[in-house]
Design a protein around this nucleic acid. Structure first.
Length: 270
DNA sequence: ATACCGACCTGTCAGC
DNA sequence: TGCTGACAGGTCGGTA
């Protein structure tokens, strides 16, 4: 579900609402799929920890944990997958179907992880988590060009490769490419430096605009406060197959690239 | 090493 | 109304 702008919105919202609170106890569901660490590791690490800070790394939500006896080097990492959600609730709120973790907080609230499709992952770590790739909003144009100029993959696939850049998903890959005027099937190494610069700038711009809009709500995405994002009204390619290009009126094409539904303008994108 | 492709899951929606 | 199949914001592992 969530890509960089949505995860950033969720992490910032969670930070505002739960930073400083302490986890008193943890309930874990019986389904093991969402766990990368063992249930015992997750329970023992979270229990008693203070949520010092909540932030985004790539598409991951990172909770920096602190406790009386240990320095703040432990982290709780949450990847939301396609349908994962972190909800702040009261104990009286009905437990949603597909709830996999409930953390009871000192404040009396509960932080719940709900994920119907179970593509999300929970993990605890001791060391500092830096994510699989580079941050799209921090990387320089030079380093950005370096990442892609040797890859034979279609540029759309390369943008989705989290080991290169982390945080870009299907929506923002399509939205960056249409804004940069580049076809999704172009081999990454075939892009000129001018095109890579345009793509770097377009990606930064679209991600910043989407963060400002609170992300894209396609079906059920809501942030930590339950509010919808509204960047979807600014989509030019994603979800607009058959509809006229906002620049030239040519119908937007929908194809499959790197196994993902891909939308582009056959006239504006070269 | 690189790049496709199915698998992993549930829910929703279109079409019959 | 109800069934079937396609599709969905992501990632991983196997295979070519």
């Amino acid at each position: 579900m969530p890509e960089l702008p949505e995860v950033e919105t969720i992490a910032n919202g969670l930070h505002k609402r739960v930073a400083g609170d302490r986890i008193e106890s943890v309930w874990l569901g019986s389904k093991p799929e969402p766990l990368k660490s063992t249930a015992a590791e997750i329970s023992s690490t979270l229990q008693g920890s203070r949520l010092a800070r909540v932030r985004r790394v790539g598409k991951h939500i990172v909770f920096d944990l602190a406790s009386e006896d240990l320095p703040a080097t432990r982290q709780w990492i949450v990847h939301l997958g396609m349908t994962g959600r972190l909800l702040i609730s009261t104990p009286e709120d009905e437990l949603p179907k597909h709830t996999h973790l409930v953390a009871r907080l000192e404040s009396g609230r509960e932080l719940r992880f709900v994920d119907p499709r179970r593509f999300g992952r929970l993990e605890v770590r001791q060391n500092s988590f830096t994510g699989p790739g580079a941050e799209p909003l921090q990387i320089s144009a030079d380093d950005f060009a370096q990442l892609f100029h040797r890859s034979k993959a279609p540029i759309k696939g390369a943008l989705l490769n989290q080991k290169l850049l982390h945080g870009v998903g299907n929506i923002y890959a399509d939205e960056a490419l249409i804004r940069a005027g580049i076809r999704p099937r172009r081999r990454a190494h075939s892009l000129t430096r001018t095109e890579l610069n345009k793509l770097h700038a377009a990606l930064r711009k679209v991600l910043h605009a989407a963060i400002k809009a609170g992300g894209s709500s396609i079906s059920d995405y809501v942030d930590a406060n339950g509010d919808e994002g509204f960047f979807q009204i600014q989509h030019r390619a994603y979800g607009r197959g058959g509809k006229p290009c906002l620049t030239c009126k040519t119908p937007i094409k929908k194809i499959v690239v790197a196994g993902r539904g891909t939308h582009y303008c056959p006239r504006c994108q070269k």
